[in-house]
Design a protein around this nucleic acid. Sequence first.
DNA 1: CATCACATTATTGTATGCAAAATTCCACCT
DNA 2: AGGTGGAATTTTGCATACAATAATGTGATG
Lengths: 225, 225
Amino acid sequence: MQSDSPAQTRAEWLAGELADAILTGELAPGARLDETGLAARYGVSRTPVREALRQLATTGLIDAKPRRGATVTHVTSAQLEELFVAMGEIEATCARLAAMSMTPIERRRLASLHQAMAEIVERGDESAYADANVRFHSTIYKGAHNGIVAEIASSLRRRLAPFRRAQFRAEGRLRLSYAEHDAVVQAIARGDAVQAHTTMLHHVSLVEDAVDQLALAASERRIRG
Amino acid sequence: MQSDSPAQTRAEWLAGELADAILTGELAPGARLDETGLAARYGVSRTPVREALRQLATTGLIDAKPRRGATVTHVTSAQLEELFVAMGEIEATCARLAAMSMTPIERRRLASLHQAMAEIVERGDESAYADANVRFHSTIYKGAHNGIVAEIASSLRRRLAPFRRAQFRAEGRLRLSYAEHDAVVQAIARGDAVQAHTTMLHHVSLVEDAVDQLALAASERRIRG
DNA sequence: CATCACATTATTGTATGCAAAATTCCACCT
DNA sequence: AGGTGGAATTTTGCATACAATAATGTGATG
């Protein structure tokens, strides 16, 4: 596990490692997280392990009960649905606030970022689009000029990351996503708060649909073998 | 300080104690939280203290830097402004969702809760109104049928609690608050999502105004006093 | 008088040890 | 066979001990 901690403590580093492992699915939902095991696995003592676990528990990534150990939080489909709805609402709120309070420079930067994505769509480069997409949404978070809301949005996005990883693989999704972004960008550009809210909500709800379809297709493949 | 821990751990208990102390202002913003001192003060060792601090740090209540100790988060007026805006947006979102997805029973319960508050307004009982107000808003959170959003709303409300404690003391605030609630209740009752959002946003922004006025009055008293 | 270097102190981060609670396992009984 | 009781084991919670880093103080020097 390579070098030591430059500025981070072991507990912080471990919290990051574990979060990654959970978000990438390496640690499956419901998996038991016993302190001794993790301590041995990561070459530290139980103390930093406990601190990392407590941190992850407060973020909701793991589920820790007083004397019964911790497990990776199991996200039910109902909770996933709630997460997507919440994400949509928060994103829409960000778009609303951004439409109201972005500076001209920020609006231009968003527009040019959006324009650059057109070329990626033409190339059909899903991976590059995914990266640019994160930047696009982050720009809107920042444009809301509200650190609290932006933090909530980022946190939700992180929690949903494992479930939307493959979203752009769905047929025609790239082009559709770009068109929706276009509506959002235009609404923000002209400072139309209501439209910005509506179009963003629509955009994110379609993301959920895309993920649903992929999940459905995946489960059908599993059944048919 | 009383009895021992029935089901919760010392760290959890301590996190609650410290959170209370911070929210009541007993621990002022910027106050240093040294582990040894807290351990002695609360009669535990440093281990649970550290775990409690880490938990509070992830909730944003305290500010902990790697090797430089923890302090109570200092909320600047800019951040407070952001918190109020965020709270307004989330509350409005809850109202929107509630308008869309509350069951008839829930709508009726909200209406009757609201009606009961009329009598409290007549009596001018600020304390009773404050309690009922919490129930009123919580009912809307639940009515959103989205645990994630409800949790975010509750968390923001907790963080703002110290700053809105005296809001109903402002002149005529009780009656005004009731009138605004009325608009929200009516919008939700008829399932008007847009109106529910708008009226709630208005309501919460007026709360902020009320708090601002009280803060202003208080600072003036301090200067003259 | 200010400033820098260095030693001292205080405080945080981590490891380890022990006690209590929970889980597991096994013999025993109905 | 199934269930129950209680040891044995595992695992968590907490305290203490030690190491490493930051904070502080002191004296010398320009």
